[in-house]
Nucleic acid binder design. Structure first.
Lengths: 108, 108
DNA sequence: GACGACATGTAGAGACGCTACATGTAGGCG
DNA sequence: CGCCTACATGTAGCGTCTCTACATGTCGTC
C-alpha cells in the first residue's frame, strides 16, 4: 500500500481506535495494526506527530501516567473528536463512492 | 471532500477514464466530473501536471491534434499504464478493506 | 466587442507521511 | 553482567502531490 494513499484518512482512523476506550500511542499503533490485518504498520514518526496534531486541534485530550516504570501518554476522544469521527465516516462513504464510480471498468 | 484525501488515488482514476478510448485533458476533466456524480471537479493546476507526470512515468502516451482551431493533447493508455491501472484497482481493494476494518464502529 | 466555454500550461505554497535519529525503561537469556 | 528485544515517546528534515493563482489563446454568440 502506497504511503500517500493514507493522506487525509489517517485522522479518522486514529479517532476510531480511541472511540471505545482511551489508549496510549504505542497501544494505538498496535490497535491499528491489528484492525487492519497487519497492513497498517505506522512508523512512530508518523503516529506521534499525528496525535499531537489531533490534540492541538481539539479532537483528542491527553494525560500522562506511569505503568510498570514506563511513562505513557494516554489519549481520549473529546466531544469535538466524536463529531469529527462521525463526519470522517461520512466523508469516507462519499469518497469511496466517488473512487469506485470512476475506477469501475466500463464494458461500454 | 478534503483535497488531501485524493492523494495517491488520482493516478488510477485518470488511467481508468482513458482505458476505453483516448481523451484529451479537458475531456478527462469532464469525464471525471461525470463519473463522480459532480464530486470530482479538478482544477487545471492539478490535472495537467498529473497527466505530464503519468506520461513521464510511461503510463500514458500523448499526441497533439487540432480540432476546430483548438489544439488538443490526446492521451492514451500504454501497456505499462494498463498494468498500472490493474495494480491500482487491486491496491484500492486492499486500501478500502484496511480503512473500513479500522473505521467500522465496534459495539464491543 | 465582450463574455463564457473550450483548451493547455507554469509557479509557488501548504500539508503531511516518511526516514533517520535520539532517549530511556523493563525483562529475558547466556 | 552484558546484550538484545519489546515497550514507549519524541524531533528534524525530506519529498511528494494537490491546490491557488496566474498566463495564454481560440471559438461562438449576444
Amino acid at each position: 500500500m502506497k504511503a500517500d494513499a493514507l493522506r487525509g484518512h489517517l485522522d479518522p482512523m486514529i479517532l476510531a481506535v480511541v472511540e471505545q476506550e482511551p489508549l496510549h500511542g504505542y497501544a494505538i499503533m498496535e490497535a491499528l495494526l491489528e484492525r487492519s490485518g497487519g497492513e497498517l504498520d505506522l512508523p512512530t514518526g508518523t503516529l506521534y506527530p499525528a496525535l499531537r496534531r489531533l490534540e492541538r486541534a481539539g479532537y483528542l485530550a491527553s494525560e500522562w501516567s506511569t505503568v510498570g516504570g514506563r511513562k505513557r501518554r494516554t489519549y481520549q476522544l473529546t466531544s469535538a473528536g466524536q463529531k469529527m469521527l462521525a463526519a470522517g465516516r461520512g466523508d469516507w462513504e462519499t469518497f469511496r463512492t466517488v473512487i469506485e464510480g470512476v475506477l469501475k471498468p466500463r464494458t461500454t
